[in-house]
């Protein structure tokens, strides 16, 4: 009897440590669960802390929202692998604790220095799969960081605006998901340039999606 009670207590404690007590995730997340959102936010700010050479932090750059949308776009099998990766890295510290007396907690409950120490361990591990897991996580979060127009503007790498000429193909294909009636162009719209177009103007305006919002901070 006593051993079963002990086993039950340990299992119950483990379940509480894994599944209970996550902070409420930001509104608007559809795919990420509470624990996943907490992990992604913690990892995003550990990888991209506030300030420094590119000021926005991972969370300020909207990485959790980006990952949430990205999960929605990838095939189910890939989505499962990404979720497994988040779960693994979130809870690995319950078995291999972070430095310090409070290190025996899931990743998102650690303080910043502990998170950095844990990620550093993954990044420099001699065990290739562990290193690969870190590289995969960093790849997903980095792509999310660079999806933020503010980050690209700060780096001077935001795409430019330029006119897209109309070609014969634009008379054939509707936008994805639409029927042929949605084709907007007619034969007379087809561009017939008399000279090669000029190279991109680096002093020209940015693509509308990447322009500074009106009233943004300087």
């Amino acid at each position: 009897m006593v051993p079963w009670v002990l086993v039950g207590a340990v299992v119950g404690y483990g379940l509480v440590r894994v599944f209970v007590g996550h902070p409420t995730p930001p509104a608007g997340l559809g795919r990420l669960g509470r624990g996943e959102a907490a992990f992604v936010a913690a990892a995003a700010d550990a990888l991209y802390p506030p300030g420094g050479a590119v000021p926005p932090s991972g969370c300020e750059a909207g990485i959790p929202g980006y990952v949430d949308r990205y999960l929605d776009r990838v095939p189910p099998q890939t989505r499962g692998l990404m979720r497994a990766l988040f779960f693994l890295m979130q809870h690995a510290t319950l078995f291999f604790p972070a430095p310090g007396p409070t290190g025996f907690r899931r990743f998102s409950s650690l303080d910043h220095d502990q998170r950095v120490a844990v990620l550093s361990g993954w990044a420099t591990s001699r065990f290739f799969p562990r290193r690969f897991a870190f590289t995969s996580l960093r790849a997903v979060l980095t792509m999310g960081y660079f999806a933020d127009p503010e980050v690209l503007r700060r780096l001077g790498l935001a795409p430019y605006a330029f006119e897209t000429p109309v070609c014969e193909a634009d008379l054939l294909y509707p936008p994805i998901g639409s029927p042929p009636e949605a084709i907007a162009h007619r034969p007379e719209d087809v561009s017939r340039p008399s000279a090669p177009p000029p190279p991109l103007d680096l002093d020209g305006p940015l693509h509308p999606d990447y322009r500074e919002p009106a009233g943004a901070r300087p």
Binding site: A46, G52, A53, V54, V116, T142, F146, L157
Partner: peptide
Amino acid sequence: APPGVLATRLPGFGHALKHTLAEIP
């Protein structure tokens, strides 16, 4: 390539990584 794709192979994280990103231009 899109900067986010290129940046996935840059080493490290934290402020050191941000410093490297700032050198992309």
